[in-house]
Amino acid sequence: MKYTYTEKKDTRSGFGDGLHELGKTNPKVVALCADLTGSLKMNDFENDFPERFFQVGIAEANMMGLAAGLATQGKIPFTGTFANFSTGRVYDQIRQSIAYSGKNVKICASHAGLTLGEDGATHQILEDLGMMKMLPHMCVINPCDYNQTKAATIAIADYQGAVYLRFGRPKVPVFIPEDMPFEIGKAIVLQEGTDVSIFATGHLVWEALVAADKLAEQGISAEVVNIHTIKPLDEQAIINSVAKTGCAVSAEEHQMAGGLGDSVAQVLLKNNPVPMEWVAVNDSFGESGTPEELMIKYGIKADNIIEKAIKAYKRKA
């Protein structure tokens, strides 16, 4: 296996460390948080740059409006709250005051998906990527580990326009090299293969690498493509990969409807309609449990990727 790890870290810490770094290097960066500073790992920024940090209280709608206003003044606002409260709760504020108004706001969303765990379905948003990618002008990024989240956080400060940056609570393997450049909209082929393409996003990229390893033992050569940017999507990377493999699997911690899989399917239908399978949550809310238990119950583990990869591979025949 080309990629491996020695430690596990939460992607939200990658965000917090990236933001702290930006505080030192970019005076235009300001941060806002809706009473979740510790959960979002924004404390270092708050402590070192208090004049550029705004505690807004439990008032996410106001936070989005404040951010839009600050962006109007040439600041680069980073908002921080859980993914659920960063999207569904404030969709209209994002739509009108940020996306439609062309504001350079970075919506940073932690605790995405099932794997926030025990808090349960009220907090486990699985629709956020769909909501955000539907908005015109919105860039949507879902990095896969601590290093990539940190790199993405730093990269989006230099991108002119609204960004949705999604990350999570659980500790997941750190396998992306610290010095790997992060280019918005550029997919990364982590492992080359010839029999099936696995397009994965978020921490399911690691599951995809594990799946590819086990598929190799069964004589199936899987290509693993890390789609960290859901929008704008690297269509050419998808087209190039399936040109080699002839079938595809998408893998994400999100509803099947509206997620990465749908975006990949659109590209394939337009360019090269090959067999495709989905690894995603199938039209269901989550529930309380440990992240591991939830990933197993809702079918988003490496084993599920293996099963779908074999299915797609067999459909080629």
Binding site: G65, A68, G69, L70, G74, R95, Q96, Y100, K103
Partner: peptide, 21 residues
């Protein structure tokens, strides 16, 4: 300087601008 019409959002935006100033 910002879209408006969906009500209730302007005071937040103006407040953000005031912070920026």
């Amino acid at each position: 300087r910002i879209a408006s019409g969906s009500l209730g959002q302007g005071l937040s935006a103006a407040c953000g601008v005031a912070l920026g100033k």
